[in-house]
């Protein structure tokens, strides 16, 4: 592709990463994969997700080329994630209060990914004053 070097400005193609793009951040990969998995398992039709995604993108479309590749990718997957959240809540699959609470738990570290990694439960969360734990105190009178 010799003529590539004669490109007049960095422009769009400068947003190119490698020939085979991968995900920029784990959360982007995860958001992508959750949407694909749910559709594959029939939780919703792909169209339903796509409509939401198109709406998110349209709503936020300012037609500016993002500063760089990283910003552009993050921007795209933020919309992807918002579309997914909106769809799941409006379909009644998830309840917004539950989602907010669970998100908070991950944000503050009360939960972490070990909960779905087999054999890696160390049940270490909640150490900082969580009342969710029954420590097995024997309140015998």
């Amino acid at each position: 592709m010799a003529d590539r070097d004669e490109r007049p400005s960095p422009g769009l193609a400068a947003l190119e990463g490698e020939e085979t793009p991968t995900f920029d951040a784990p959360w982007q990969a995860r958001a992508f994969a959750i949407a694909v998995a749910l559709s594959a398992d029939g939780a919703y039709e792909w169209d339903a997700f796509q409509d939401r995604l198109a709406a998110e993108i349209e709503q936020a479309d300012d037609s500016a080329v993002p500063a760089d590749r990283t910003a552009s990718e993050a921007d795209y997957y933020r919309r992807w994630l918002a579309a997914l959240e909106r769809l799941l809540v409006s379909d009644g699959v998830l309840e917004s209060g539950t989602l907010t609470e669970r998100t908070r738990e991950f944000a503050v570290g009360d939960r972490d990914a070990s909960e779905w990694v087999e054999g890696e439960h160390d049940h270490d969360h909640g150490a900082a004053g969580s009342d969710a734990h029954d420590h097995g105190h024997d309140h015998s009178r």
Binding site: A25, W27, A113, V117
Partner: peptide, 22 residues
Amino acid sequence: HDPEARVRALQSLLIEQELLSS
């Protein structure tokens, strides 16, 4: 919330509801 916590929460709840395998 940052997106990392948001996707984790989604994944966690969907696994609980058995809509997603781990």
